[in-house]
Simulated scan of single mutants.
Amino acid sequence: MASVYRSLSGTKSKEGATSEKGNDDRPKNRQRLLILSSRGVTYRHRHLLSDLYSLLPHSRKDAKLDTKTHLNQLNELADLYNCNNVMFFETRKGKDLYVWLSKPPNGPTIKFHCQNVHTMEELNFTGNCLKGSRSILSFDKTFDGQAHTRVIKEMFTHVFGVPQSSRKVKPFVDHVMAFTMTEGKIWIRCYQIIETEASKKDKSSSDSTTTTTTPTLKTPSSTGHGETNISLIEVGPRFVLTPIVILEGSFGGPVIYENREFVSPNQIRSDLRRKKAGRYNSRAEGALEAKVRKRDLGLRTGEGRRTVDELDSRRVFA
């Protein structure tokens, strides 16, 4: 069966591959990814990590890291497991998720704030891509506009791009990972590629104006028996990344980019608490001023002096 598969797929045997090994000068994509998290992750963050691990066959999952301050230990872990990419999930206060992407041992390192996390099990979409298959990376043209966005795009290419020579990869490309940048945030979506042969009803309906829920594309069939409709169905997961800083080294070094518009969730919660406290203080001060005003007018019994009017009964009938 192996010879039949090689003859149909067009691959060469080991003898032929070794004979032409010296003539093959194409660069090989040798990327391995280490995925791990810190202590205190929630169930949603843990399921997101599992979803990414299932979508990336060139990744390796490790146990939780005990420290949040000495992140340079991740370089030693990556060297131990022979990985040249690291994805680290750091959780703060059991609610805020930060994603670190690094290229050990020389860097760079990008820190993101992860929001709007929705896992595959939670979304329950109808799309279902093959486990271990490769993906097509689709980037928005906004990534080519600035220097730091080009660095982010290159990092995403190394982390999410599954190499063809990976050990667990299967020879199929059946899903697309889309990266879209709007308002300084990166929206990540995953879609399954579905190919169906166009029937006569589809050809007749294509002549009339109709609306479809999923984008479709007509391409000539590889078997030569007509056209095929290519559509995309979302698989999941969904999450949004906000870049914070880019470091020159691997989990350290000088800062080469900093997002000045980013506001930490701790600051947002502090402002909300201060706003609520301000409303309470204003109400308390208003109540105190009302009491003082009533006391000055003599409307409170036993407090303040009440001025006696000339027409008061105590003066008229004195």
Rank of each mutant, 00 (worst) to 15 (best):
L8T: 10
G10N: 04
S13E: 03
S13H: 06
G16P: 06
K28Y: 07
S38G: 10
R39E: 15
T42Y: 11
Y43R: 06
R44A: 00
R46E: 15
L48A: 07
L49D: 01
S54N: 01
L56N: 02
D62N: 12
D66K: 15
H70F: 15
V86L: 01
R92M: 11
P104V: 01
H113T: 00
T126R: 04
K131F: 14
G132A: 07
S133T: 12
R134N: 00
I136K: 09
D140V: 02
F143H: 03
M155P: 00
H158T: 02
G161H: 03
R167P: 14
M181P: 11
E183N: 11
E183F: 07
I193E: 12
I194K: 06
E195L: 15
S205V: 08
T212L: 08
P215W: 04
L217Y: 10
P220Y: 01
E227I: 13
L232G: 05
I233N: 12
P237F: 00
V240C: 00
T242C: 06
P254W: 06
N259H: 04
F262I: 09
P265N: 04
N266G: 11
R269W: 15
K275I: 04
R283S: 09
L299F: 13
R305Y: 13
R305A: 08
A318I: 04
